[in-house]
Amino acid sequence: MSMKTFKFRLYPTKKQCEKLEWTLARCCELYNAALQERREMYTYTGKGTNYNAQAMQLPEIKEIREEYKDIHSQVLQDVLRRVEKTFKDFFKRVKAGKKPGYPRFQSRTHYDSFCFPQVGFSLKNGRLELSKVGHVKIKLHRKVLGTIKTCIIKREGKHWYACFSCEVEAMPRTPYTDKVVGIDLGVSKLATLSTGDVIENPKHYRRAEKKLTKAQQALSRKKRGSKRRKKAIQRVARLHRKVRNQRNDYLHQWSRRLVDTYETIVFEDIAPANLSKRAKPKQDEETGHYLPNGAGAKSGLNKSIMDAGWSQFIAFCEYKAANAGRVQVVKVDPKYTSQVCSGCGTVVKKTLSERWHSCECGTELDRDHNAALNIKALWLGQSLQEAQAS
């Protein structure tokens, strides 16, 4: 059994929209209050608290704030679980030596979802029944598979969505071929396969950048709190949502093709978050003046890396492969995969701008194709000459 999420568009009435917005606002208040309680308790007593202790206070809170009686109890409990999870993740990062990122308060504009973890919702005759809200019209554009476990109501701009997390049985499928394919991820091209095939990078964000720039400039000129500013915010959010949807659709299509075709898919074990870090400042030791550090070029590269969606592409392939059963997605060390010749195994140093691999042994091919062959060879555990012959 595996978990799968189905997302559907909701079409609430004006009154229902107001109720959903009101529910989000109350959940945001509760989240911030629970976070504040944890901070103050640790400051004054040196001890923290947990979900159980805070959940026990919900009946008292409802007596003081009667409006919380109009929200399903499990929705409020899930808000407190969300606070619990943020602190657990914080302490995990501390123990791992990563940048901790202490839990922060949420604004109403950023707190955009609430969850029915077990009960309080049901699907009937093309409508979603939500406790304390009513029957909301829903667009069921595909069949919901398995057993629904949770229902998340999410706001995206002016639109509302229902996300059902379902427990479904795995449906094994045999790939078209039992071959291994190595994949080198890039910026100018989204991916190059060891077979020589190329997945182009549509650069959705870059294509929408001019419109986004104009929309964000218009937003910056609007007076805070005005209706015009709210409309400008919605326009910027709509443009970002369109780019995200375009990218997801493209990555879904190609990840499905790869999983349906190959039995083993080999990626580089890369960390896009590390590759897209800002350039470090350079300072003259004698004068103290800051020197050119290529921040402009690095910023453009970072934007292209994030636009490509490498992590998302790998994640889509991984969960589709898990559902397929016989397909596996693996990762190998990316060290020297771009520099080593796939024909003879010698190191041919190249700058990032050199896109063609040329070796004295006579191997001539695209730099990314050469890297994809090396990635495949690393997984097979062969010498580079054997990998090339196979």
Rank of each mutant, 00 (worst) to 15 (best):
G182L: 11
G182A: 05
P175R: 09
T174R: 15
D184I: 07
D249F: 12
L212V: 04
K189S: 13
R173Q: 15
A170Y: 01
L193C: 05
A237S: 15
L258R: 12
A170F: 01
N201F: 01
L193S: 06
L239C: 03
L190R: 03
D260L: 06
S194M: 12
V236L: 11
Q216R: 15
T174L: 11
D178C: 05
E209N: 12
K222M: 04
T213F: 04
N201G: 14
R221L: 04
L251W: 01
R256F: 02
G182R: 12
R206E: 03
A208S: 11
R257Q: 14
S188H: 13
R235M: 11
G186S: 06
L212H: 11
V198M: 05
L212N: 10
R229Q: 14
R206S: 09
A191D: 01
N245M: 03
K227C: 02
E209Q: 15
A215H: 07
L185M: 15
T195E: 06
T192M: 10
P202E: 00
G186T: 02
S188F: 02
N248Y: 03
K230N: 10
I199D: 01
K222R: 15
N245T: 12
R238Q: 13
V243L: 06
D260K: 08
H204I: 02
N245W: 00
P172R: 00
K223E: 15
K230D: 04
K211F: 02
K189T: 05
H240C: 10
N248K: 15
R221Q: 11
A218H: 13
T192I: 07
R228P: 00
K179L: 06
N201M: 05
Q253K: 15
R244G: 08
Y176R: 12
R206L: 02
D260E: 15
R229I: 09
A232H: 08
K211P: 00
A218D: 14
G182T: 03
D249R: 11
I183L: 15
G196D: 12
A218W: 01
K231Q: 11
R229N: 02
L185I: 03
P175V: 08
R207S: 07
A215S: 14
K227A: 08
D260F: 01
Y205A: 02
E200Y: 04
Q216C: 07
L190A: 11
K179V: 09
R244Y: 02
A237K: 12
D178M: 02
Y176A: 13
P175Y: 04
S255E: 10
